[in-house]
């Protein structure tokens, strides 16, 4: 593309210079920046000015457990998602294009299905008398129903299911860019399938894994619905705690502080990703 064309595109986008952007800037300011600032303000003024909300959150064992649990769930969900998504993405990358677009369609369709519906469906499947436990007991594999719900297992299953498309899509892009002949070359060089995977395919797909992984991790950190429905009281996540503080305890100050900490962590992770893989890859090339 020539410089000239790029310039004309730029002029097209901003016909009136910065003035044309004003309505958009006002909108973003009003609905995004102001609420975040209000949140920050509330966290240091409610019920009284000072950092007592942050001190309480960071100094208390109960809250620390919630923070820890939030990161634990996000880490477990991200790891499992990567493990499940990788083979699917690889299959999609090497599939004939016509078939791949059908599979893509199925994956995207699941993203469009209502989140609550999907989570309730998992509740039906995973409960003590659910389909999975009854099937396993009928085949004689287990005597007692497995504890699949109201614990970390349930949250992981439900969330991995929801996060999979966000991992698969960037990963397919990365894997498609790898020339399959490279792997044939590796095989003829004497690399066993496992060696070819570990030394060639995996390193080459790392940018996709990193992009998808961080997206899933960040989304998981603030997730509410699935942990609330499939998780147990002993492994509460941050979003649930914030909901409780504000809805049940009406403690706006503490809730705001917790929300703000989550925001800072998320942004720090995003900044880290930008630093590591660059803007184009971090945003999926948009």
């Amino acid at each position: 593309m020539s410089v000239e064309t790029q310039q004309s595109v730029a002029t097209l986008r901003m016909p009136g210079g910065l003035g044309g952007l004003l309505p958009a800037l006002i909108l973003i300011g009003l609905f995004f920046v102001v609420p975040v600032l209000a949140l920050l303000l509330r966290s240091v003024t409610d019920p009284a000015p000072g950092f007592q909300n942050y001190a309480a959150l960071l100094g208390d064992g109960t809250y620390a457990r919630v923070f820890f649990n939030t990161f634990l769930v996000a880490a477990v969900v991200t790891s499992v998602t990567v493990l499940v998504a990788f083979p699917v993405a690889w299959m999609l990358a090497i599939m004939p294009p016509a078939l791949a677009s059908i599979v893509f369609g199925v994956i995207v369709l699941s993203m469009w299905t209502n989140l609550l519906t999907r989570t309730y469906a998992w509740m039906v499947l995973l409960q003590r008398t659910g389909v999975i436990n009854r099937a396993l007991m009928a085949t004689g594999l287990i005597d007692q129903p497995l504890p699949l719900i109201n614990n970390l297992t349930g949250v992981t299953i439900g969330m991995v299911y929801i996060m999979l498309p966000f991992m698969i899509l960037p990963l397919v892009g990365t894997l498609r860019a790898i020339d399959p002949m490279t792997l044939r070359a590796a095989a003829l060089c004497g690399a066993s399938p496992f060696q070819a995977f570990r030394r060639i395919l995996l390193p080459l797909s790392l940018p996709g894994v990193a992009a998808g992984g961080l997206m899933v991790f960040v989304m998981s950190l603030g997730y509410f619905v699935t942990p609330a429905l499939l998780g147990g009281t002993s492994n509460m996540m941050l979003a649930e705690m914030i909901a409780q503080m504000i809805q049940s305890l009406l403690n706006w100050g503490l809730g705001s502080a917790a929300a703000f900490i989550l925001l800072v962590v998320t942004m720090a992770l995003y900044a880290l990703q930008l630093r590591l893989v660059g803007v184009r890859r971090a945003t999926g090339g948009v």
């Binding site: 003829l188 030394r199 060639i200």
Partner: peptide
């Protein structure tokens, strides 16, 4: 004998070097 045990060298049409 699978490819990786044939001990054969090969140069391809496209450059199949490992880019990383």
């Amino acid at each position: 004998v699978p490819s990786h045990k044939r001990n054969i060298g090969m140069v391809f049409q496209r450059y199949t070097l490992f880019p990383h």
